[in-house]
């Protein structure tokens, strides 16, 4: 078990290194373009360009440039945006991280719980009316775009019905740090959580139902029936665990991608200044240092989430544990 974990950790470090090299090469070694010009932004003065060249070691070899960049990102943390004059990139990301983490963690809790509930209920009543209704509802959930749902939620809770009993508790858009006001944090995030989670609840419910129904074809389910177990026990103790493998796989990918900036639409709609919003803004202004840093940050979370998924496999299936 421990060796598997250590192996995973080493693999993670290696993958991270690979990603950083690739990202670096894309930005700094694309033929026919001058990285200095891109870092300095449009219409930069010749002095700025010279300063950038010197600052990023662009007159030196590629490995040195890579080392300088990594030093700026991880050691000194003094990477500065030239487009957005004087913005310190690393602190900006550090500041945005708790917003994104709060949003995605809360939504993840909701969608895991909702996906489990829908998948299990639909599988238990498969072929019957409840199953069909749940599947139609989840398909609807999957089909509703997040930005539309977010805007509609805002329209109702911030404008039209804000003064009614239902929505008078909803605070103004924006993020409230947990440390300052836990209740305010919760109120500010509740609707964004539901908005972000809805599509995932539908998707995960459908995937879970499909994999439970598939597991029901297995011989060991027949054995469980022949043992005289109750249907609920067969579902929860014999079918569910193996059915969770695709569920967990998807969760790892989605969670990593969302923390890494994929929640940007929810963040933009609800005025949450998270990593997604930061990436979105930097893409609009082609702010190379910020893009570079946020891509690396995102890849970190994707890699970590995948490692956690592998550990979850170990817990779910003893067959993986032993080899």
């Amino acid at each position: 078990m421990l060796t598997i974990l250590l192996q995973r950790l080493a693999q993670m470090a290696f993958v991270m290194f690979g990603i950083s090299v690739m990202v670096f090469l894309i930005f700094f070694a694309t033929p026919g373009s001058d990285p200095a010009a891109r870092i300095a932004g449009k219409n930069a003065a010749p002095e700025t360009l010279a300063a950038v060249r010197h600052d990023f070691g662009l007159d030196q070899s590629l490995p040195v440039q890579y080392a300088v960049m990594m030093k700026k990102l991880f050691v000194t943390g003094d990477l500065v945006s030239f487009v957005n004059r004087g913005l310190k990139v690393v602190p900006a990301i550090v500041e945005a991280t708790p917003v994104t983490l709060s949003l995605v963690f809360g939504a993840a809790l909701l969608w895991v719980a909702g996906g489990l509930a829908i998948g299990i209920a639909a599988a238990a009543f498969r072929g019957r009316l409840i199953d069909r209704l749940l599947m139609i509802l989840s398909l609807t959930g999957v089909a509703i775009p997040v930005f539309w749902l977010g805007e509609m939620t805002n329209l109702l809770s911030q404008n039209r019905l804000h003064d009614t009993l239902f929505f008078s508790w909803v605070p103004a858009l924006g993020y409230v740090p947990f440390a300052e006001d836990p209740l305010g944090w919760f109120k500010a995030l509740l609707l964004p959580w539901f908005t972000l989670a809805l599509g995932f609840i539908g998707l995960y419910g459908r995937v879970l139902r499909a994999s439970i129904v598939e597991i029901y074809q297995e011989d060991f389910i027949r054995t469980a029936r022949a043992k005289g177990l109750s249907e609920s026990r067969i579902l929860l103790r014999h079918a569910l665990r193996m059915s969770l493998v695709p569920f967990v796989t998807m969760f790892g990918l989605d969670f990593g991608a969302l923390v890494g900036g994929g929640a940007l639409m929810t963040e933009v709609v609800f005025g949450l200044n998270g990593v997604g919003k930061l990436t979105y803004d930097s893409l609009q202004s082609l702010d190379l240092p910020v893009i570079m840093a946020s891509v690396l940050y995102a890849s970190f979370f994707v890699v970590v989430a995948n490692a956690l998924v592998d550990i979850a496999y170990l817990m779910l299936d003893p067959r993986i544990r032993s080899n």
Binding site: D219, F220, R222, T223, A226, K227, G228, H238, M242
Partner: peptide, 28 residues
């Protein structure tokens, strides 16, 4: 009824199935 069958299955009538490789739940 399903409930009566559950009482009989495994208690009074037991089944040994064809393929022992797949007859046991792998996670327990």
């Amino acid at each position: 009824s399903e409930r009566e069958l559950q009482r009989i299955r495994g208690r009074e009538i037991a089944l040994i199935s064809q393929d022992p490789m797949t007859a046991l739940t792998p996670v327990h």
